[in-house]
């Protein structure tokens, strides 16, 4: 299978690879996630029941609390953190600050082609330094 790549804006620098976990709803790191298991427990999320650990989390946007940073960082402390975040919109500074502490790369992809093409389970390589997301 040939690789397909999309341009991305690196928000939190780093590189990661993993299977895509795709949501159509906004996710709140405070309240929607169980930090011990990495499981999505928020009923307003279409990922309810899924585990984010090691996945490339593909989200339209993040939602809500300024406490988001703490929960993202706690996922790292408990080793239940996602591999990377791919967002459509720039996140709240709190999410970005948590991702810096947790060393979870974040990119924002504006290209609608990516959002149409990506499917659950696709193996994605996120390069937030070069600014690229690649399906491998």
């Amino acid at each position: 299978m040939t690789e397909t790549g999309w341009k991305a804006r690196g928000v939190v620098k780093g590189m990661a690879e993993g299977p895509a976990l795709i949501s159509q709803t906004a996710l709140s790191f405070l309240g929607d996630l169980d930090i011990r298991s990495g499981r999505v427990v928020g009923r307003s999320s279409d990922l309810c029941g899924e585990v984010v650990t090691g996945r490339v989390l593909v989200l339209p946007e993040t939602r809500g609390s300024a406490g988001a940073w703490r929960f993202l960082y706690q996922l790292k402390v408990h080793e239940t953190h996602p591999a990377a975040l791919v967002l459509r919109e720039l996140p709240d500074p709190s999410v970005t600050q948590g991702a810096f502490l947790a060393e979870v790369p974040i990119v924002v992809v504006a290209d609608t082609g990516f959002w149409q093409a990506v499917t659950p389970g696709d193996r994605l390589r996120v390069d937030a330094v070069a600014g690229r997301v690649t399906r491998v």
């Binding site: 300024a66 406490g67 988001a68 709240d92 500074p93 970005t96 948590g98 810096f100």
Partner: peptide
């Protein structure tokens, strides 16, 4: 605090985390 500072006091703040 962010919303009170921006909206009532006229100070300038984002919704920060640990930073």
């Amino acid at each position: 605090v962010t919303v009170f500072a921006n909206s009532v006091l006229g100070a300038r703040a984002n919704r920060d985390g640990f930073f």
